[in-house]
Design a protein around this nucleic acid. Structure first.
Lengths: 238, 238
DNA sequence: AGCGAACGAGAACGGTGTTCTTGACCTCAG
DNA sequence: CTGAGGTCAAGAACACCGTTCTCGTTCGCT
């Protein structure tokens, strides 16, 4: 999206100017991520600029506003998270459905615990006054699509799942299936994916936001236990 | 906690001063809640003061800092949410276990959708630089305790639940059971309560933070569908 | 009746995001 | 090779923000 910006400003794509410009954008985001990790959710442009030995207004050459920078961080975050999950899954044999399911879940948890502030950006409170632009919805779907892939891949080996899904919910599911061109995915199976997806991020948010701190010590086992149950619900054989 | 403050400052408990003081505190919180509902997560003391026709520094007579005001709002929020859930459950016949379960879940969802900014305060990102004081943990447990109550009340009518719970998780559960003096609650049953509890807030956070907006239209049915499944998992008979 | 505490106003400090102007620099066309 | 135009960082400025402090005023209790 910011490469677009370069073009609109009238810089030829491969020019040296454009290269240092994009490197500068990368460094700004990198420093911002570090600040985010240190300070928590409130990102200060002036602090980022200070860390770079630069004045705050200079950042506006690269990002039109603080929200734009945050948006870029969010997109990068979704992509990093999606990549981490995809890589973890790729390391598991393709026919080990349960292994892939748990690998994805654990990768998401690991990434979230390693980048709590970024995770909060992605899955916590919407930033006030800030409406997530459409650019964020595509990267945001990567994790759930990974889960879908697992069930599509192993379709014939899955255990049957109850078909009782409320009619209007089934309609929504049908629409989503059509949008994603996954014609051979039954609604009740996608339903179970969404149940696992909801639970995955519900539990990680609880852990990441500190709600389990005083309750559970064996948080890794607790997480695996939950996600194994979700795999059961999705009909993934043991 | 702020009545304590009054005492420490040296005001006799029932005095007129103390009364107008506590009324003032109430009004500040009320105005702050309205601001929160309008502006979203970022609460501005100056805006609150402006709404009250008062100067910002005057607020410091009643709350020692912005964090303290937010803490008060959080505690009030937990209590309002807990009360809403308890009231909804009380309106259902005591032996209708599933009805009570769904009533609690729906009450939480309804409250969250009616007070999204407050819900974000309670269950979203931890406020940056702000560590939840211990005063908030007790009110925060009310909802899950309501769910526990349902299963304890109907213990003999519940369907059996798999006893396979990882050892270290079982230890955590055992400790929680002892802390809450619920000696007759099996670990695997409490486990299922926590699964439902996690899913409840996971799904509501998704909905409240807008993650379901473009995916599901039948959100109420979707929610009921999920929570009914959680009731199944907890062994609540149909 | 008078003392002292609580109060609200206001100024001040250091922080924030954002805008605008200014001057230096680089790149490319003539 | 020179000049024009675009890009850049800097800095001042503006309007906010939380917080602290000081200053009269007010008001309740003894």
């Amino acid at each position: 999206m910011f490469s677009d910006l370069c073009d609109t400003v009238g810089m030829s794509a491969g020019s040296l100017r454009a290269r240092v410009r994009s490197e500068m954008s990368l460094e700004i985001k990198e420093v911002a991520r570090r600040r985010l990790a240190v300070d928590g959710g409130n990102l200060s442009l002036r602090a980022v600029a200070r860390d770079m030995g630069i004045v705050a207004s200079a950042l506006y050459r690269y990002f039109p506003s603080r929200d734009a920078l945050i948006t870029a961080l969010i997109i990068d975050g979704y992509e990093a998270l999606g990549t981490a999950a995809a890589d973890a899954q790729a390391a598991v044999p393709r026919d080990d459905l349960r292994g892939r399911w748990l690998a994805v879940c654990n990768a998401v948890r690991t990434w979230a615990l390693a980048h709590p502030a970024e995770y909060g950006l992605l899955y916590g409170n919407p930033v006030p006054g800030y409406a997530a632009p459409n650019d964020t919805v595509a990267p945001a779907t990567r994790v759930v699509l990974l889960l879908v892939d697992i069930l599509v891949d192993g379709a014939e080996r899955l255990e049957p799942v109850p078909t009782a899904v409320p009619e209007r919910v089934r309609t929504d599911l049908r629409r989503l299936i059509d949008q994603q061109q996954q014609r051979d995915l039954p609604e009740e199976r996608l339903d179970r994916v969404f149940i696992g997806w909801t639970h995955l991020f519900g539990l990680i948010s609880f852990e990441c936001f500190g709600r389990l701190d005083i309750m559970f010590e064996a948080r890794a086992e607790y997480f695996d236990h939950h996600m194994a149950l979700m795999a059961d619900l999705a009909g993934i054989p043991r």
